[in-house]
């Protein structure tokens, strides 16, 4: 089964059809999607700005990570589920949309950056936990993260201009 036939089958499901052709589901799901993204990006930025050394210098980095990570993941799950539902409503069209593809690439980059930071950079973080300006690799991870999430939001908004 090819990807295009999977996308076509997804688009033909009853829930995708209801979102595509109904009056209320699409705007409600879209609103929740945007609010969830606001939460993800807002909390990620709090963490990134701390890593870069711009804000919250009085807060330990590991403490801030422990507090923010569960919130980011919870909001991300909501954003991903609502995003998948919106995607399903016109799966074949969105899959071909260059802005949508760019958004997925930016998401993947944000995810890889986060995974690398947590797996590699954070080792030995106790030593710089309370530094207002953490080492270069942590600051770089924060800057890359912010750039990726700005790209996710901008390309996500751009999907509608290429529809």
């Amino acid at each position: 089964m090819s990807l295009s036939s999977v996308l076509a089958a997804l688009e033909a499901t009853p829930f995708a059809t209801a979102i595509r052709e109904g009056s209320y589901l699409f705007p409600w799901i879209e609103s929740v999607h945007v609010l969830a993204i606001v939460l993800v990006v807002g909390v990620v930025f709090v963490m990134d700005l701390r890593l870069i050394g711009v804000t919250a210098g009085g807060q330990g980095i590991n403490r801030l990570l422990k507090d923010s990570t569960p919130l980011v993941w919870a909001a991300f799950v909501v954003a991903a589920v609502t995003g998948f539902l919106l995607f399903s409503s016109s799966a074949t069209t969105y899959a071909a949309n260059p802005a949508f593809r760019l958004k997925l690439v930016a998401l993947a980059a944000a995810g890889l950056n986060m995974a690398l930071f947590h797996r590699v950079s954070l080792k030995g973080a106790e030593a710089w936990d309370n530094l207002v300006k953490p080492p270069a690799q942590a600051r770089l991870a924060g800057a890359i993260s912010m750039a990726c999430w700005v790209a996710v939001v901008a390309s996500g908004r751009w999907i509608g201009f290429l529809a």
């Binding site: 990807l3 899959a95 071909a96 260059p98 997925l104 690439v105 998401l107 995810g111 890889l112």
Partner: peptide, 19 residues
């Protein structure tokens, strides 16, 4: 994170059409 990256790249690899 890795699964998301893989899914993203798979979808990103399908051909585009004009809009």
């Amino acid at each position: 994170a890795v699964a998301l990256a893989a899914l993203s790249l798979t979808l990103a690899a399908t051909p585009a059409s004009a809009h």
